[in-house]
Design a protein around this nucleic acid. Structure first.
Length: 590
RNA sequence: GCGCCCGUAGCUCAACCGGAUAGAGCACUGGCCUUCUAAGCCAGCGGUUGCAGGUUCGAUUCCUGCCGGGCGCGCCA
């Protein structure tokens, strides 16, 4: 519908008499998407064009005069009732009722495809999200990443992007070693060894079954006496020492006592188990990935070395204090970054730029990372890395997701993976339900903090707005059941031929809202803003519920009945399409 | 100290890359079920958009400075 107005204004622009605009203004006198907008107030018509206001200055003309020139050049159209100039130079379009009604045919014909666009032009996007360290189950914060990332990926797909979803597994590095040691220590405790658990180890109960698993795999072959492990270690935090030094010493000792193979067994058992759990959790949450990408594999397949060699050949690295540094400052980062430490170990940053380079090499135009708000310092350096390796820096786009604070009523719930005190995503889903979770997580803009009140979400789950939208969908289905019970059938062709009968204000409003859906998908995808879809669906549901209360659909007049049912079925289709993008089910009854 | 994000109704949040009289939900007040699901509808109440300047036809939106909150600033990952 918006495109109609756009094309009319574009024609008017082209048809402006010579000399209306000075030559230097002619260049900017092209229609921009923002020049046509939906009006907020119906008194200003249905669409407003602001191009006269925008061009007035360059044209050295009064905006109202310019608007009048445009108005004179505007071609007539059957769907346009009247056009008038208002305020400082708005050109307001009032559309004919029939203009809205056509959307019903369009929706019914296109079905699931209604609202999709070619905006992405088939370009390839890789969306990386969650990528939580596999050191424990997902918690409620990860849930927000999962819901946001999955919904955004769906939105981009609807907007014509070719989307690849990926999970980056941080299966290398120190936290994996701490996990292996923690698992092994639990295994020893299960065999009767007594000692106090390292304060910096993973202490959550979820490791207990994993330690049992290790027992099944290894039998007693990894059993060592506690005394052999803890004798001669530096003090732990509880004894006035440093918890990091202590856990490192425990890891070194574990390696000595178990050998590389034994240690690796503990690590692999824990990693496989936790990763399996994460994968299942996400799948149940409706979040499916195209690929799970192992950080370790970057070392194995030489990707890190390739990236470093590339940087080196470009002269972008230097040595200092025995370490190898990347000149990130030359690309706008605030400081240079170590890529190989003095001890020869490559940093996490090294694997990260290698990973992003590898994404580019796989042919992705857009590298979209969904990261926690605490990672913002990160963007500049990865972008610097890409640019130094000859890739466009703006191919990397990062969306930060602010933290979730969990409340039980007034009380804030403290969480920490290390200590094992946290509410898992799985617990949350069990209490609140997948639909409400998915919905609640993306209701708010990702750059807003999210307060998740468990008490509210569980006790009063009927107040959750997701039900309001689902209810609209279920109500339509219920109307159809009612129709059948009364021995009637819906004649879609007759309904679509009689759309002119839909003259009630609620019918006009709902049809108008339906025409907004494609624009909304486009704009939500462009802005990476799933919450816009949530707000739209609420409005559409509101239009429907109002209509439902104001008028009966199943009336005696068969033609009118079919027309109304056609409108209502089109509404159900759009609700279904939108809920699908959100990953929320569209129930037939509630 | 430096950097990024945020500050809008009592509460939780919107506001279409600068548009017209800043909108929803919850809460509160009052109405609507012998007719398609009341998990619904309608009406009312509620605002100096943190503060002070600037840019222009127009600012919640852009710029500067303050105030308040969150998060970063490792040869950790």
């Amino acid at each position: 519908m918006k495109t109609l107005v756009e094309s009319l204004v574009a024609q008017a622009l082209a048809a402006l008499p010579a000399g209306t605009l000075p030559e230097d203004a002619q260049a900017s006198a092209r229609l921009a998407p923002a020049d046509i907008e939906r009006t907020r107030d119906a008194r200003n018509g249905d669409f407003a064009c602001t191009i006269a206001l925008r061009l007035a200055k360059a044209a050295k003309k009064n905006p109202r005069q310019l608007a009048e020139a445009l108005l004179a050049a505007l071609p007539a159209h059957a769907d346009v009732l009247k056009v008038e100039i208002a305020g400082p130079g708005f050109i307001n379009f009032h559309l004919a009722p029939a203009a809205w009604q056509g959307v019903v045919r369009e929706v019914l014909a296109q079905g699931e495809a209604y609202g999709r666009s070619q905006q992405g032009g088939g370009k390839r996007a890789i969306v990386e999200f969650v990528s939580a360290n596999p050191t424990g189950p997902l918690h409620v914060g990860h849930g927000r990443h999962a819901a946001f990332g999955a919904t955004l990926a769906n939105l981009l797909t609807a907007a014509g992007w070719q989307v690849h979803r990926e999970y980056y597994i941080n299966d290398a590095g120190r936290q994996m070693e701490i996990l292996a040691a923690s698992t092994w220590l639990r295994y020893l405790q299960q065999r009767g060894e007594q000692f106090s658990f390292p304060s910096n180890g993973y202490r959550g109960d979820y490791l207990l079954p994993i330690a049992e698993q290790l027992g099944k795999r290894a039998g007693d072959t990894l059993h060592r006496a506690a005394a052999a492990i803890f004798t001669g270690l530096p003090p732990d935090e509880a004894d006035g020492g440093d918890k990091d030094d202590y856990i490192d010493a425990v890891i070194v000792r574990a390696r000595e006592l178990l050998g590389e193979d034994g240690f690796r067994m503990a690590l692999d058992v824990a990693l496989e188990d936790i990763l399996g759990d994460i994968r299942q959790d996400l799948e149940e949450f409706g979040v499916v990935y195209d690929r799970w990408y192992s950080e370790r594999s970057l070392t194995t397949n030489g990707a890190i070395d390739r990236a470093l060699t590339l940087l080196q050949s470009q002269g972008r690295v230097f040595e200092k204090d025995g370490a190898l540094w990347f000149r990130a400052t030359e690309f706008g980062d605030e400081k240079d970054r170590v890529v190989v430490r003095e001890n020869g170990v490559k940093t996490y940053f090294a694997s990260d730029i290698a990973y992003h380079l590898e994404k580019r090499e796989r042919g992705f135009d857009l590298l979209l990372d969904i990261l926690g708000a605490d990672h913002h310092g990160y963007i500049a350096r990865v972008r610097a890395g890409l640019e130094a390796m000859g890739q466009p820096g703006d191919s990397l786009e990062v969306r930060l997701v602010q933290f979730v604070t969990l409340f039980r009523g007034e009380e804030k719930v403290q969480m920490s993976t290390r200590s094992g005190e946290f509410i898992t995503l799985r617990q949350l889903r069990a209490e609140v339900g997948n639909d409400a979770c998915r919905f609640y997580y993306v209701m708010r803009s990702n750059d807003q903090h999210l307060d998740f009140d468990l008490e509210l979400a569980t006790k009063r789950s009927n107040d959750n707005p997701v039900y309001y939208i689902q209810y609209a969908h279920a109500r339509v289905s219920s109307v159809l059941r009612q129709l059948a019970e009364r021995g009637l059938t819906h004649d879609s062709a007759s309904g679509q031929a009689a759309l002119g009968r839909l003259t009630e204000p609620q019918e006009q409003a709902m049809a108008a809202t339906l025409t907004r859906y494609p624009e909304l998908i486009d704009s939500a995808a462009t802005q990476r803003a799933p919450h816009l879809l949530v707000h739209y669906l609420r409005e559409l549901a509101n239009d429907f519920h109002s209509y439902y209360n104001a008028h009966a659909f199943i009336v005696d007049d068969a033609e009118l009945r079919d027309a109304r049912l056609a409108l209502v079925l089109a509404t159900r289709q759009v609700l279904r399409n939108g809920l699908g993008i959100l990953g929320v089910t569209a129930p037939e009854s509630m």
